[in-house]
Amino acid sequence: MKTRSNSQTSLDESKLVKYSLIATAILFLGVMLVVPLITIFVEAFRKGAEAYFQSFTNEYVLQAIKLTFITSAIAVPLNLVFGVAASWAIAKYSFFGKSFLITLIDLPFAVSPVISGLVYVLLFGAQGWFGSWLIANDVQIIFAVPGIVLATIFVTFPFVARELIPLMQEQGNDEEQAALLLGASGFQTFWKVTLPNIKWGLLYGVILCNARAMGEFGAVSVVSGHIQGTTNTMPLQVEILYNEYNFVAAFAVSTLLAILALLTLVLKYILEWKVLRELKKLKNEE
């Protein structure tokens, strides 16, 4: 009898622990994530839908949106190519300095974005290493679009590679060897064998890369110079609008970024499921 009551108490206790942990997690998520997210939309629509949409007619806002899209349209494809190349090299070949390269890819995750931006200022700025040459040749990188693109590329380059390396390592290179032995060219092998095998992982990496490219603040802030209508991306424009006490417009632009984040989450969820399924199939095959 005694043991039974004992076990019941311990069961009660574990239930208590369980529910209090769940409650803590939900409360925390609610306060830290959901409430702010709702706030964005509430603030954006505080003065009605008209004021909300009015915000997007502002020339500077439109320019900021445009620049954000241009930046990610350059940074994401470049990082896609880089990511595929790097993970191919790491997963399918062994070479000297491989683990160093893997560490290097993670560097942008480890460094504060502000530092990332600062590095480019020190390299390409007027007082920087290449500064005098750039001025002499009339090339402007810092406080201009090229600087923003460079900083964005730096900050976002681990995403695709990080996603693909484990996937490609898992898959090995038997299929590629089989294709080559069957007479396929290198390009045919990549296009018909490798790419279909990594497509979901690749898309997943691209989605995350894009979300970060559009949302990046720190690194871009350092190199941008905040010239309204020229070198402001969406996140920078939000800051400026907010500092100008133009809350409705600030939150209106924020809603775009929030919607982007939500879309990313949905896609991420779907793609994660697809990648997992591919990996399961792979396990099944062995």
Binding site: E175, A178, G183
Partner: peptide
């Protein structure tokens, strides 16, 4: 490799997993 006129069979099959049996055989 592709010009050696060799047919190679791997221990772990190395079939193209996103292709049907038909497409696997037709690949070469």
């Amino acid at each position: 490799i592709g010009d050696r006129d060799i047919g190679f069979v791997f221990q772990h099959y190395a079939l193209f997993k996103h292709m049907t049996v038909f497409e696997n055989i037709a690949f070469g």
